[in-house]
Design a protein around this nucleic acid. Structure first.
Lengths: 342, 342
DNA sequence: TCACAAAATGAACACGTGTTCATAGTTCTG
DNA sequence: CAGAACTATGAACACGTGTTCATTTTGTGA
């Protein structure tokens, strides 16, 4: 069929075979402009037989925009991060785009990364990194590339944000702990936490303060010197060596929570026997038998869907009013703070 | 500086500003052809001031090859998969490429996926999926796109493979279990396992058979009806209800192993008290206090590096002899089968 | 049948780059 | 010093597509 094997079949080939002009082929595949029904059929048949497929590079060059969407991720080893990426990939592909994924190690790489995005004329950029790449995001905006941030509020003009409802999550956690009879509460977070963590902590404090009108409650803060599982574990050990006592703990994320639980176990304490524990982010890990952690579950599919919706909206009209959308969360009751039977 | 804000600065702009031809600009940025030292400096200065950056779409169109590398992943929620992706991303970026990541849910999506890769004229494709996309891989080969598979042997012409040393891993595991005094051994795998799993099982059986010359050993097979953590857990429960007894278990992957351990715990057994347990894949999860699983650790960085090396080699010369490279693994001793003090 | 609107079509341009080719300038060599 | 070898440079073409703009064909109502 294809005489020259090394020559990728082009729209011209299809046009020649179908006996029409190349413009007609282009119109057929973009559904742009009008083309007679039988002509379209001839073209589609010829394309099918030749195995024609549009060259996205040429298409993007012409349209000044590719079907690519840049995704900035960090620390994929964190289960929540990888689940979020999974959700984003799924959504991106469903909408007919392709994901250009970049992991940033040290922040200085990020400049080059975003630059590459613009060089590929991406249709949009999703930033899931905790560290805010302010300068580069501005560069994108300047290049007219829509940007959306996830779980991270940045004070940048013309950028949208999707965020899980930290307020709601913290309130649910506070409610559950208090209803379970906890009076001495703790908030566990990493020392140099991301914005999400800080935001959840503030919301938790507010929720507790509000409840203090009804009953006497005590809130202390436990600070982890590392992030992730190990951070939570050493925080627990340190905490046990102090003479503090606590009945209910709320953690900034699931990794910290699992680590904290394991650290407490090493010291002879366990949940829910000796204290209640609630984490943020409902990952596979938290559901496992060894943890069975009660958590605040984020709606990843909804988050991803809204992120892409933002990108598309801003792609159509760059002057859209910046959105700051909040996605509802839910309380997932498991063993470390079990359901109440009233 | 830039008069027309909506007009991306092009090589022609740089040429005009520097008072040279556009060809000189191209030569400067590609290090192709010769350009006088002072001319180059003029051009670089002008480019710097204008903020010029090469349009990768145009470049790719011309070169018939983009700086993109397609990565096919599946089940990112599996910690090992996401760590592998992390390693690949890092290597891809270090080599100056960009990753086009696609997650495939059901296998029928994969055809369209690979088609998209070819439409973007990727420089190579990395397949990490367990399911073998034979047809599409062939399509890539036909389009002269290098393909490399990871941890999956496929019988396809002109495709390279990188694989962790399952033979070595299984032998190390057998040695450790036997040296620890286990005589009744079991191999746990998912019913419809990937090639990796099957390969590890065969190697384990071989290793045991070899050892049987010296002492009497017993090997049974435990089959999980699901994959992943839950598969391991239910397999353990089922196993306990049988009257079989076992002293050392080797699992096809870490998720199965963690699940199996938790399942056994639910039934009142624990490792290493009642049996020894070794898994494959050393992930963050296995290191955590609640599991402290002895595992076979894969060298992800090395695997990723070799994968890219294969792609580049085949990119230079498509007729290279197909490689099947084996990456050494190591035994990571932890609690479920502790180190021996001889 | 005619006038006119609407649909269909192809020629031509634009997108931004890499690379070949011929030419002018420069250095080397015997 | 003449010729050769080499470096530097710009004009021109190719890459494969989308889209505009005339032009031709078709359809419609009177």
């Amino acid at each position: 069929m294809n005489i020259n094997k090394n020559h990728a079949v082009t729209a011209q080939d299809v046009a020649t075979k179908a006996g029409v002009s190349r413009a007609a082929v282009s119109r057929t595949f973009t559904n742009n402009g009008s083309v007679a029904k039988e002509t379209r059929e001839k073209i589609l048949k010829a394309a099918q037989e030749l195995g024609y497929q549009v060259n996205f590079l040429a298409q993007g060059l012409n349209r000044k925009r590719s079907q690519l969407i840049g995704v900035v991720v960090a620390r994929l080893s964190d289960p929540f991060r990888s689940r979020l990426l999974e959700g984003l990939l799924s959504e991106i592909q469903n909408k007919g785009y392709q994901a250009l994924v970049t992991e940033i190690g040290n922040p200085k790489d990020l400049e080059e990364t975003i630059r590459r995005f613009t060089q590929f004329r991406v249709s949009g950029v999703v930033v899931t990194s905790g560290q805010p790449p302010t300068g580069l995001v501005k560069e994108c905006v300047q290049h007219n590339i829509p940007v959306v941030g996830i779980n991270r509020h940045m004070d940048i003009k013309d950028v949208d944000f999707i965020c899980s409802d930290n307020q709601m999550g913290a309130t649910l956690a506070a409610q559950q702990l208090i209803d379970s009879g906890c009076h001495k509460l703790a908030w566990l977070n990493y020392k140099e936490s991301t914005w999400s963590g800080v935001s959840r902590g503030e919301a938790f404090r507010n929720a507790i303060e509000q409840k203090q009108a009804e009953q006497v409650l005590n809130l202390i803060q436990i600070t982890a010197l590392q992030d992730g599982y190990e951070g939570g574990r050493s925080a627990a050990k340190l905490f046990c060596r102090s003479d503090e006592r606590v009945e209910g703990v709320f953690c900034a994320n699931a990794q910290l929570a699992c680590g904290f639980l394991d650290g407490m176990r090493e010291e002879g304490f366990d949940a829910p026997r000796d204290f209640h524990l609630i984490g943020f982010d409902d990952t596979e890990l938290t559901a496992q038998y060894s943890y069975r952690l009660t958590t605040i579950g984020q709606d990843i599919e909804e988050t991803a869907a809204r992120a892409l919706s933002c990108l598309e909206a801003r792609g159509r009209d760059a002057t859209t009013e910046p959105r700051f959308e909040v996605v509802p969360v839910k309380l997932v009751l498991r063993n470390t703070s079990p359901a109440l039977f009233c």
